[in-house]
Design a protein around this nucleic acid. Structure first.
Lengths: 221, 221
DNA sequence: TTCTTTGTTGACGTGATGTCAATAGACACA
DNA sequence: TGTGTCTATTGACATCACGTCAACAAAGAA
């Protein structure tokens, strides 16, 4: 079956050659573009590589498997989420209740916007996380749990300062709020090729903000 | 390679024959027992069937594939979650704030206990849901969204009654709280062969309860 | 016993994976 | 411009899980 196509057509697909990291970037870009259109469950190595013009085996020169691929996609985004919420995470109640609520609200909205931007990729990583132990490690423990830890520290300070009620368990409350935020945002913004209206987006941000503020600081009138 | 083993040993594994639904129950039980030990990602048709004494192809006489299998596992549990929370879901604020909070607290705890009992199975279904569109349909839309809808209706009534603040969007708030509860409980109780201490269990129930009550009804002092 | 029903399985084709030896661009140097 | 080296790239292979189907054999009927 292996015909020498060029013997007839005189033409063979020219085999280009790129620099290693150029190829790697091309693969990462192809994966991102794929995930903008289709869910992770449909992402095969084959389907990603056709978008690069390289052959499927070439993939394995740069990535161990598709889980390794999404892990590296996460690297570019993970830091952002922390950076974005830094003001609230690292702060304390010194500005008083109103100012504190406001900083929290700002943090929730900025964090949410990161999800809006990278929704499909984050969704893919979350999906991959419960199919592969390595991704689970990086995402669930390296990112989500670490984030929950930072939130817990903040809650702990607010409880100590009397800003939040003492009956709140910082660790567990933080986890609950972080899980809520993650899943809700993934649900709304993580679907390929289906971005919600700006009204919906606003309503979602608003709902999240209310739950955070009312849970931690009480009323938000 | 296909040796006639009995020609030598004189013995062949006797091929038992069961009633259809007896076999089906055996497969469902095997799947449950598998999921008590290992995560869904490791569940292959082969590995389930060895626990039944039947061959792998026999599986396909009863189930279309492993996603069909977990879907049927869900059937037995789905109804429970609704039944358990019925008092709060279908109620209104007629008993006054304290009574209402108490009914909610009871609902959250009873619902959570269902997760404690069926954690690994529910976790498997949730995992399967983002690997297969049919499971997604049944779980995400048939169960979670439907549940969120019932919660939204209740929140809506509480807002109308002035028990919850008018700035809460019933639909979105309900979704946020339901997602939180689902993911948090799956995280804690969904891991095969690793059940948390009773202290942890208590702290988790408590944190969930606090977020629900403070969000919907304000302070819980 | 013989017949019929149907639960059960061996064997096959398929799709995706990950590896490896062999191939052929790109660049350095003469 | 020609020659050689390096290494990016790939065709072909072995593997694994899947889903199907024709053929087999156990249980109940006649």
């Amino acid at each position: 079956m292996q015909e020498k196509a060029d013997a007839v057509s005189g033409e063979r697909a020219p085999r280009r050659r790129r620099r290693p990291e150029e190829a790697e970037r091309a693969i990462l870009a192809a994966a991102r573009s794929f995930l903008e259109e289709r869910p992770f469950r449909e992402m095969t190595v084959e389907r990603v590589m056709v978008r690069t013009g390289l052959s499927r085996p070439a993939f394995y020169a740069y990535f161990r498997d598709r889980y390794d691929l999404v892990t590296r996609l996460l690297e570019g985004i993970g830091g952002l989420l922390f950076a974005v919420d830094w003001r609230w995470l690292s702060g304390d109640a010194s500005g008083g209740p109103e100012a504190t609520s406001e900083v929290l609200i700002d943090a929730v909205r900025r964090g949410s916007e990161t999800f809006v931007q990278y929704g499909p990729v984050l969704r893919a990583i979350a999906d991959a996380a419960d199919q592969d132990p390595r991704v689970e490690e990086v995402y669930r423990y390296g990112l989500i749990e670490r984030f929950a830890g930072a939130v817990a520290a903040r809650v702990s300070r607010d409880v100590a300062a009397g800003l939040s009620p003492a009956y709140l368990d910082p660790e567990e409350t933080a986890r609950a709020l972080v899980f809520m935020t993650e899943r809700y945002l993934l649900d709304v913004f993580g679907r390929p090729a289906d971005s919600p209206s700006s009204e919906r987006t606003e309503a979602v941000f608003d709902a999240l903000e209310k739950v955070w503020v009312r849970t931690l600081y009480g009323s938000v009138d």
